[in-house]
């Protein structure tokens, strides 16, 4: 473990920026970026020119003003923020299919991972899951991350170092279907986001602790069916559940409520005296002329992947049965 890196992780409640930090810049709801703070770093956007040197030594979560002014003489601002797993997922450049919040949340919660857990992640990809796992198992735990693409591995490794989690993540660039996971000890959980997960089931049996869980993250049902056929060959692996999650974003808008139509109300009262009470209730509601209404976004991510949960069991207490 890199002790120096371990010690550098900031622990205070209010984070202060220092040179070399990787931070998140919140420009707007759909523009969230990550930058490394160097003295010569300058970011330019529609709100102006922002110099990193203005930020170093200051607390995060406060407005970062531009040095330039707009036509009306106002200085634009953005928010510098400390990276949380959620902000990180929103900010990273998409190199592969991402694992999104609702999936990550459920996977970590259902696997029972926490500080001190050890976990294998196969398919480093963009590092969205890697960072979430690292923040979960820190301190005392470890994430073993595997990917076959060297470029992706080195990019995520460098980011994890800058995020001060380099000490609790090991990266390995290898073809796990062919070579297995190498010299990794028994782990509490395994997360597999690879195109052919059925090829690594045999390695999973050896690596998982008794009672541990493996999650196969497969976008296609064909992958799931093939994986289950392979899982069924191993007596000690038991299929627990297959789930898909969905996170539907909503937007709220104010909605003006029109005044009641007196003529229509009188007509209703005469024709249907039994609705008198209902009319009175709606009258009370209409006193507020503006209501909010929530609409689901027109398009959203309705399918991410099938999460296949498999547990390694002890059979009737006999380890070798």
């Amino acid at each position: 473990m890199d002790e120096d890196n371990h010690l550098r992780k900031p622990r205070q409640l209010e984070r202060v920026c220092s040179e070399g930090d990787l931070i998140i810049v919140y420009i707007s709801a759909d523009q969230i970026k990550s930058i490394v703070l160097n003295l010569d770093t300058v970011i330019v956007n529609k709100y102006g020119k922002f110099y990193a040197s203005d930020l170093i030594g200051k607390t995060l979560g406060r407005k970062w003003y531009s040095r330039t002014v707009d036509k009306k003489g106002r200085r634009g601002y953005v928010y510098p923020l400390w990276p949380t797993p959620e902000l990180w997922t929103k900010s990273i450049m998409q190199r592969t299919q991402l694992v999104y919040s609702s999936d990550i949340g459920l996977i970590i919660h259902k696997m029972g991972l926490g500080c001190g857990s050890s976990v294998i992640e196969a398919g480093t990809g963009s590092g969205s899951m890697t960072f979430a796992l690292a923040t979960t198992v820190y301190p005392g735990g470890h994430v073993f991350s595997f990917d076959s693409n060297e470029e992706r591995v080195s990019a995520v490794k460098s980011q994890m170092d800058k995020l001060y989690f380099g000490s609790c993540v090991s990266f390995d660039c290898r073809d796990i279907a062919e070579k297995g996971f190498g010299e990794v000890g028994p782990v509490d959980g395994i997360f597999l986001d690879i195109p052919e997960p059925w090829l690594v089931v045999k390695h999973v049996v050896d690596l998982l602790r008794d009672g541990g869980t493996v999650v196969f993250y497969s976008p296609c049902m064909e992958q799931v069916l093939r994986t289950i056929e392979e899982v069924n060959l191993f007596h000690r692996l038991k299929l627990i559940q297959i789930l898909t999650t969905c996170s539907k974003p909503y937007e709220t808008r104010p909605r003006r409520v029109f005044q009641q139509d007196a003529t229509l109300l009188n007509f209703l009262r005469e024709q249907y005296p039994q609705v008198e009470e209902t009319i009175e209730e709606t009258k009370a509601d209409k006193e507020a002329t503006v209501m909010t209404s929530a609409h689901a976004y027109r398009y959203y991510r309705s399918h991410t992947a099938y999460l296949t949960w498999v547990q390694k069991l002890l059979i009737n207490g006999q380890k070798d049965s």
Binding site: I228, I242, L243, C246, S247, K248, P249, Y250
Partner: peptide
């Protein structure tokens, strides 16, 4: 952000 979360189980 406001979001609705849901899960769906599959029989295999």
């Amino acid at each position: 952000q406001l979001e609705e979360c849901s899960q769906l189980e599959h029989q295999i």
